[in-house]
Amino acid sequence: MSIMENPIPGYYGEVRWCGDINEPVISVNPIDRLDSVSIKDDFKVGKNTSLAFTTDLMSMFHLNCENAEECLEKLIERTHEITKDALFSKNNGAFTGFTEDDLHFIAEVLNVKVK
């Protein structure tokens, strides 16, 4: 909910389908990227998009939802059993906790040093 209600200024969360892992994923992108992405529906803070759902994710082949609210509900239903146990990474077809490689990648993105 934090991404929806308190987005990073100048950025939005994008929920899309990732064919590599055959799962929905979320990324944080600059607002100006919205012009080049096929968004079906979104949540806004004021006039700005805070969380967007791509057309491919919302299609009948993935979440099959009509609007952002329904898509969010289906996404929560789909992921709750996995995320409640803090399994946020998919490795070799199975959900796991973050690996050392995941943590290093996240740290690089955040420009934080990892011990």
Rank of each mutant, 00 (worst) to 15 (best):
M1P: 08
S2A: 13
S2R: 10
M4E: 13
E5G: 00
E5W: 01
N6D: 12
P7H: 00
I8C: 08
P9H: 05
P9M: 00
E14R: 14
G19Y: 01
D20W: 10
E23I: 00
V25R: 11
I26Y: 00
I26H: 02
S27Y: 09
V28Y: 07
I31F: 03
D32R: 11
R33D: 08
D35K: 14
S36Q: 09
V37S: 04
K40V: 02
D41E: 06
K44A: 01
K44N: 09
G46Y: 05
K47N: 13
N48D: 14
T49F: 02
L51P: 04
A52E: 10
F53D: 03
F53S: 00
F53Q: 03
F53N: 07
D56N: 15
L57G: 06
S59G: 09
F61I: 13
L63K: 01
N64W: 02
C65V: 00
E70L: 04
L72R: 10
K74D: 03
E77L: 10
R78K: 15
T79W: 01
T79I: 08
H80Y: 12
I82T: 15
T83M: 09
S89P: 02
S89R: 06
G93V: 00
A94I: 03
G97P: 04
T99S: 15
E100Y: 06
D101W: 06
D101G: 09
L103N: 07
H104D: 14
H104F: 11
I106S: 06
A107P: 00
E108N: 15
E108D: 13
L110A: 12
L110M: 11
N111Q: 09
V112W: 02
V114H: 10
